[in-house]
Design a protein around this nucleic acid. Sequence first.
DNA 1: CCGGGGCATAAAAATAACCTCAAGACCGCA
DNA 2: TGCGGTCTTGAGGTTATTTTTATGCCCCGG
Lengths: 230, 230
Amino acid sequence: MNEAPMVLVIEDEPQIRHFLHSTLAGGGYRVLEAATAAAGLEYAARQPDLVLLDLGLPDGDGLMLTRRLREWSQVPIVVVSARGQEQDKVAALDAGADDYLTKPFGVQELLARIRVALRHAARVGGAVEEPVFTTGALRVDFAHRQVFVADREVHLTPNEYKLLSVLVHKAGKVLTHRQLLKEVWGLAYANENHYLRVYMGQLRHKLEADPARPAHLLTEPGVGYRFKPE
Amino acid sequence: MNEAPMVLVIEDEPQIRHFLHSTLAGGGYRVLEAATAAAGLEYAARQPDLVLLDLGLPDGDGLMLTRRLREWSQVPIVVVSARGQEQDKVAALDAGADDYLTKPFGVQELLARIRVALRHAARVGGAVEEPVFTTGALRVDFAHRQVFVADREVHLTPNEYKLLSVLVHKAGKVLTHRQLLKEVWGLAYANENHYLRVYMGQLRHKLEADPARPAHLLTEPGVGYRFKPE
DNA sequence: CCGGGGCATAAAAATAACCTCAAGACCGCA
DNA sequence: TGCGGTCTTGAGGTTATTTTTATGCCCCGG
């Protein structure tokens, strides 16, 4: 999440809705408002990071909304309600809500519970696959910043690694001297063609079976270099 | 989970403890009981599926227990407490608790909230952390905050321990100077690279057989450091 | 057949990053 | 207030990396 998390507030009473809005905005969240269950469901399609739901809605039940939402979304749902009966809580929680606050509740507690719910969501969402590039005997593990040739780890210096990264990320494509120099060394070095010769040589030496006859790190005479996968 | 989920109950009052035990057993859970924070931490190493914690413990604070647990475990923690002050709730939730119930609470609500917590944990899946990490002669016991080299305990200062923790938790990965400094010392120290050199030196001195030729605590020049398991 | 451009390779020089040691500041505790 | 442990800071020496310099190859055109 690179921006402020977005909270969808579903609450029919304008007064409370505005109160929640300002509370959340004060807590650093972006806020989306819905006054009815129908509108809430509508807005949920915009994929908010959390839903703050008042159970006492006029049209249709908040419970039903929870269930409908859970059919396709795992967004955290924090319920607030005037009704503090145990059976209400159990029903809401079992319907898919993640937390249940009884009015009146404290602002700080609400914010703390929202933090908890977002913490959970972040853990689930964060399970991204690790990017690993493999071709022939070469393996580049970007997550670990490790490079292997035939299962033997090869140590690369920062510049060597950067250069290889750029080439591998655009595998198959020809990259001009200028492009490579800009990516690895920065704009100011865009004409230092000799750097490339030196570093390509080092990479070939470390990665290629026969550095003089490279299989992957190819020269495109007069233009630049190219990484050729298997 | 092919068996009944195991709940660790940490509660000093025998009466309440027994009550919770029978309630949970009635709900189909296996139960582990601990009467003190110390015992709780001990039992937590057995990797229960959920921790039910009473904040009003005699020895040490329940809050501290929560934080200690969170250093290495992501087990859901449901707090029950006689204290219903908002600041208590916020503190517990921010320390890492997943839910907070104020006594007196209903049995059905407790069970429902436990179901919610287990639902979350199930979604995260097999991300269970081992309470102790072992590789070669090195053993790190996160539950007890103890470190051993060849079965001999080694004393680490707080910063040394934190640094080692971060490295070990991401074993194999290269961690940049910035990342490490942020984790251990905080954002404000993100450029104090020299700290890392000093502390890595101390860790090597204490943990490595040959500090000048480290086997696990490796330097990635120009980038950061990496813990390499066996 | 010579000379120049583009490329490859090796190795020296310069620079940057790192390690070690140790003194002094700081903090919690008796 | 003094003590022990820990953290912070600095200086000097070492190692790794980057940059520069030098040399040779190959191909092509004059």
